[in-house]
Structures are given as structure tokens and as C-alpha cells.
């Protein structure tokens, strides 16, 4: 029962990643794509955690933590770039 529900949950996350990927390719401006990348990255972090449970190896969670960390910096830098171009320093 638990295994079936875990597989269902992984499929749901993969489906939502496909939806966001469409917005990522299509989206008209850069902030749209950063928003889509936001959803994709955090969704993939959850998928990594679920697979760490399914495969039964408890130390694989480190990578999802690292992914969340790096995405924060990337978003901050893109925001800084967009603001700086508008201000024109």
C-alpha cells in the first residue's frame, strides 16, 4: 500500500515537472522562466527525497539540500542583474 502510494506520488511530481517545463521553454520573459525553474527545482528535490526512501539508502538526502541552497543564490543573482540593468548603474 505504502509502496503503491509512493509510486503514485512520484508520478504526480513528474507530471507537474512536465507542466512547468512547458512554461520554462515557452514563457515569454526571464522572470517567468525563473519562476518555472523554481517549481522544477524544488519538485526535483522532493523527488530525490522520495527516491532516497524507496531505495532505502538513508544518506542520499544531502543532494536535495544542496540543490535548494544553490537555487537560492541563482535566483538572487538573476534578480540583481535585472534590477541593475534597469537602474543603470
Amino acid at each position: 500500500m505504502i509502496d503503491l502510494l509512493l509510486n503514485v506520488a512520484i508520478s504526480m511530481f513528474v507530471l507537474s515537472i512536465v507542466f512547468s517545463l512547458y512554461r520554462m521553454i515557452r514563457g515569454p520573459t526571464v522572470p517567468d522562466r525563473m519562476l518555472a525553474l523554481d517549481v522544477i527545482s524544488y519538485g526535483l528535490a522532493v523527488v530525490m527525497g522520495l527516491i532516497a526512501i524507496v531505495s532505502g539508502s538513508p544518506y542520499l538526502i544531502v543532494i536535495s539540500f544542496s540543490l535548494a541552497l544553490w537555487f537560492f543564490i541563482g535566483a538572487l543573482y538573476v534578480a540583481r542583474y535585472l534590477e541593475g540593468e534597469e537602474i543603470g548603474e
Binding site: 544518506y59 542520499l60 544531502v62 543532494i63 544542496s66 543564490i73 538572487l76
Partner: peptide, 23 residues
Amino acid sequence: KTPGGGFQGGSIMAIAYIAIIIA
């Protein structure tokens, strides 16, 4: 015992200072 090591930890340590420089 876990995946990771000096390079990985160092790159995460660099995140802290890069975040300070950016924000």
C-alpha cells in the same frame, strides 16, 4: 560515510560568502 567531501563542502561554504557579496 555519506556522499560528500572536501570539494562539495567547500563549494557549499563558498555559497555563504557569495550570498553575502550578492545580497
